[in-house]
Design a protein around this nucleic acid. Structure first.
Lengths: 130, 130
DNA sequence: TTATAAAATGAGAATTATTATTATTTTTTG
DNA sequence: CAAAAAATAATAATAATTCTCATTTTATAA
């Protein structure tokens, strides 16, 4: 993987983002710093960065993938109301890889847990309006 | 939800299938019993059945959703070599919903764990060829 | 440093999965 | 059996992502 300015900007933009943006969302922000960047370049680089474990691609948040600069083991929660994506501590499923490998005889290379429901903010909003 | 012959055939076909097919795969099989069925009808019914918790839609297995007639709590593993989807016992992550709700204050309505790697068959094939 | 090869880019076409539209048919119900 | 509600087939439309390709950028090494 050679250096490229576009890839650098993509990575820095993703790192400075608290949320876990979709490609489309990231593209809108990127355009400010790098107005000529192409959507294909963004997708190409996101995939490359993910393959090299520099970032993480979060699948299962239909209809589009989200991207996370945090590569430490952790999981994700998407709020069905506000659509924000939150990190969930890996503590909620201790030894999940080891247990799965022991149960099955499979080799686990990747895993993710995706939760959905209502986040704290949205739960409180709903309570107030009742 | 009214009765419809198409929905019945879709459900029975899914139930008689050990694998966890995509819509496209299911469509090919369905055509034998119900040659005039439309792909839109299949998608409409799969979504309806999933909304009513009669079947389960498995997201996170890009590039397309898979469908599972087993609605009991369990998880999924996709083999990166043979692409088969296997069930994983819920035992590998005990109390994962309760723990997540306690940690966050969120309300968890759904969750799934998706693992990927190599299944037992493919691991053995690789060993043999070495 | 410069020539060459390898990698990356932008622009837009192409592809794939899925959903929406609509006229028609099927199912339910009183 | 008639009317209303739901479902269908066919196909157009959409949205996310990947592919193509001519051009530009980056790395290499003579």
């Amino acid at each position: 993987m050679n250096y490229s300015r576009q890839r650098e900007v993509i990575l820095q933009t993703l790192k400075s983002n608290v949320v876990h943006p979709t490609a489309e969302y990231l593209y809108a922000i990127l355009k400010e710093k790098e107005p000529n960047i192409s959507l294909a370049t963004l997708y190409r680089n996101l995939n490359q960065l993910a393959e090299n474990d520099i970032i993480k691609k979060i699948d299962g948040l239909e209809p589009s993938s989200h991207f996370d600069h945090n590569t430490h083991e952790h999981y994700h929660f998407i709020c069905e109301k506000c659509k924000r994506v939150y990190d969930i501590s890996a503590d909620v499923a201790p030894d999940v890889i080891r247990k799965t490998e022991e149960n099955t005889g499979f080799l686990v290379k990747k895993h993710d847990i995706v939760f959905s429901g209502l986040c704290k903010d949205c739960l409180e909003q709903i309570k107030e309006s009742n």
